[in-house]
Structure formats: C-alpha cells, structure tokens
C-alpha cells in the first residue's frame, strides 16, 4: 500500500508558504510551557494545567479532514476520563490565527468537549509554540482560492508536570490513546 504523497493533491496547488516551521535548533528542548490566548479571550499558559494530563493537537477550525477526526478521538478520550472523574484536559492550538479568532475556536471546540480549550495567538506566538513542539505547517492557497493548511497531525500528550511525555501519531486507535493516558493518570 502506498502512502500517497498527499491526499490533497499538492501537485495542483499554488503554494504560498506563510510558515514552514518546526525544524528547531539542535539542543532546543522539545515541549515546554507557552503563552497563548484561550477561546474566552484570556491569556493562557500551559503551566495553568499542572496536575492534569493534557492532550494537545494542532490544527485549524476550517480543517476538512484530519482535525475533526483527531478531535473526535480526543473528545471520546476526554469523555472516558471525565466520566471516571480523572483530570484530563484537551488543547486545540490553531495554526491559522488569522482566521481562527477566540470566538470561532470556542464555537468549534464546543462541538467536541467542554474539557477542550481552543488556543490562538499572534503569528509569532503560534510559531514559537510550533517550534517548541516541532510542528510543521504551511498555509497553502490553491487555484480555486480555497485555503488549506498542511500541518503535522501528531497528538501531543503532556504529563501532570507539564512535560511532554509522548507524541501519538495520527492513525493510532482510541484504545491506544486511552491506554497511554491511563498510564499517565496513574503515574
């Protein structure tokens, strides 16, 4: 089976690269705290969630495929743990801050889970977080003027101390993610 270069047929796209980040300098630690704005338009720092296991995902509200799929999984997982009273939170960081205002993010994330917070910020702030987490993305405009953002689709799992524990590739099953989170909740 061939993993096609891209399911979005990049060949026909006119590509405007607004950002193509993610290759961090050697020695830069992966993960860590950051400052952004949450979907209620309040400043948000990752360190606020110390004591919770955090599932973090990068995407954008108009994302047609990967984001809703991944967020669907995330919300399922959040529900699983919420019903058990375990402290697991979700973060959705937009890589398209130009379009994704706090309001849009709030509407978007509320479809999935109330444990899920949408985060946005200035282009610089987003780029900084993307670099910290080695997230690659590029904003592409095609011939039909439809804008898509091509981005990394790992799910980032952060432990109770705010340290990045693991990256779960898109495509891993829900039970797998539940097992990973469960392991961290108990730890």
């Amino acid at each position: 089976m061939i993993n096609m270069l891209s399911k979005k047929s990049i060949a026909v796209l006119l590509v405007f690269i607004l950002a193509g980040l993610g290759v961090a300098q050697a020695g830069e630690k992966l993960g860590g705290n950051f400052l952004l704005t949450d979907h209620d338009n309040r400043p948000f720092e990752l360190s606020q969630l110390k004591g919770s296991v955090v599932l973090m995902f990068f995407g954008y509200a108009t994302c047609p495929d990967v984001c809703p799929m991944e967020l669907g999984k995330v919300s399922q997982i959040l529900k699983t743990f919420e019903s058990r009273g375990d402290d697991v939170k979700g973060l959705f960081v937009t890589v398209d801050p130009a379009r994704d205002s706090p309001q849009i993010l709030k509407g978007y994330t509320s479809y999935f889970s109330k444990q899920l917070t949408g985060l946005t910020g200035t282009r610089e702030q987003i780029n900084k977080v993307a670099r910290q987490y080695r997230v690659k993305y590029q904003i592409i405009q095609n011939e039909t003027d439809r804008i898509v953002v091509d981005h990394s689709s790992n799910l980032y799992v952060i432990d109770k101390n705010g340290d990045l524990e693991t990256m779960i590739p898109f495509g891993m099953s829900v039970p797998h993610v539940v097992n990973v989170v469960e392991w961290l909740v108990k730890k």
């Binding site: 047609p64 495929d65 799929m69 495509g171 891993m172 829900v174 797998h176």
Partner: peptide
C-alpha cells in the same frame, strides 16, 4: 469506538 480511526 474500539477501532482505529479511518482517514477522511
């Protein structure tokens, strides 16, 4: 729910 998620 118990299966891996299919792509779009």
């Amino acid at each position: 729910a118990l299966m891996p998620v299919a792509n779009a």
